[in-house]
Design a protein around this nucleic acid. Structure first.
Lengths: 218, 218
DNA sequence: CCTGCGCATTGATCACCGTCAATAATGAGC
DNA sequence: GCTCATTATTGACGGTGATCAATGCGCAGG
């Protein structure tokens, strides 16, 4: 993942990557309470992370796609603090955290890169707080779709046509809404002509207007 | 902050701490967009961090008290991604991030400690997402007060009697509620006999019931 | 092909919380 | 001590989204 390494260092980082691991759709990569040993970089596939509170509430805290890193929440306590579950058949690289720590002590670039990744995760979480704290249902939905669009685009896929891997309920959990509200919101955006929804398939017709729909009433 | 260092290493970590800096009530420690150079450890006082979105929305993302670290959000982009503002006259230790990086390459304990702090910040943020995504107004308030109580207690102050430093509006922003709802919620908890509110002064009478009030309807 | 199950859509109703508004209390500054 | 601005409380009302419920769709498996 990091760039700008010497050939020699690059080799060593390559060795850092332990095994690969396949995770079938619906199966957990790790569960809350399991001992934390490794980080996971997604090679292919799609995941959700989900926190479960003492009183049984569930909150999806994120959806992860290829290239993204999972497991950072486990470093602090030595135990995973959320569930990570595959939304489609997926493959991850296992990155033993001990080895990453050692190596990042020797390779500046790797250390910096790792710190940046953690920091960006914090910034991302803050953006979700903003979404949950201040946006109305349709704004949240627009923000979610724009975010998906950008992430697909940055991976070379279409920014305007993609298949969601998660259910309405999972979207709702992530956005702090009920699944009915998600469904209604999508129908509404469709009526307004911003996009077409057909089950999990989304076709965005007016990306700019969708971005504007993230802001309060016109 | 880290413990378990040799005397020698302890000296070096001490040197890591740059200047101290005083921040008067209401003044910013840093603002969004400023270049990121240092982390800040609070010696005394009380801060809030706040994200401001492009369309002008504000979201308080946290309240920080003595011993806590601020500025982690800046590492990823090299710029601060939120405002940090003192809620009372405060003093912080400036920790130049370059020096921290260097030193943590040499001192394992420091490296581990730093990684844990970042990870815990991520877990904390996820707990806030859970709060914003799944809890009703009064549950959020109870959770907020219990959290404050615990943090005061862990610093040697009373767990049942303390002064909030922030306004109802700031509490509301943090909890995704309007200030009126915060006020009503506090009044309600008071009517129920769980606590006494007098402006910013909180006296908790039934901490266990307050904890129960974090969960859905009795 | 049909069956059954999970997922999605849509409608009707209701409750929670936001909004608007008026008043009160607090604290800083002169 | 008085004034003013800020902060907090409380009430009335309305809207957004939750809840309850019924129907429809799509897909895996027999």
């Amino acid at each position: 993942m990091p760039v700008g390494l010497s050939d020699n260092d690059l080799e060593r980082v390559d060795e850092l990557i332990g095994a690969r691991r396949r995770v079938a759709r619906g199966m957990p990569l790790y569960l809350t309470g399991e001992s934390f040993q490794s980080l996971y970089a997604i090679r292919t596939g799609f995941f959700k992370t989900e926190v479960i509170s003492e009183d049984g509430r569930e909150q999806v805290t994120g959806f992860q796609m290829a290239g993204e890193l999972m497991g950072l929440d486990g470093i602090g306590t030595g135990q995973h603090n959320c569930d990570a579950r595959a939304l489609e058949d997926s493959e991850v690289c296992v990155i033993p955290f001990n080895r990453l720590s050692e190596l990042s002590r020797e390779i500046d670039t790797l250390q910096h890169h790792f710190h940046k990744v953690m920091s960006r995760e914090i910034v991302r979480d803050q953006a979700v707080m903003m979404l949950l704290g201040t946006m109305r249902a349709e704004e949240r939905l627009a923000a979610f779709l724009v975010n998906m669009s950008q992430r697909f685009a940055s991976r070379g896929y279409s920014a305007t046509e993609f298949n969601l891997r998660m259910t309405r309920e999972e979207i709702g959990s992530y956005l702090g809404l009920k699944l009915e509200t998600v469904s209604r919101g999508l129908s509404r955006l469709q009526e307004e002509g911003l996009l077409t929804v057909q089950n999990k398939n989304i076709r965005i017709h007016k990306l700019d207007e969708l971005k504007r729909a993230m802001s309060p009433r016109c």
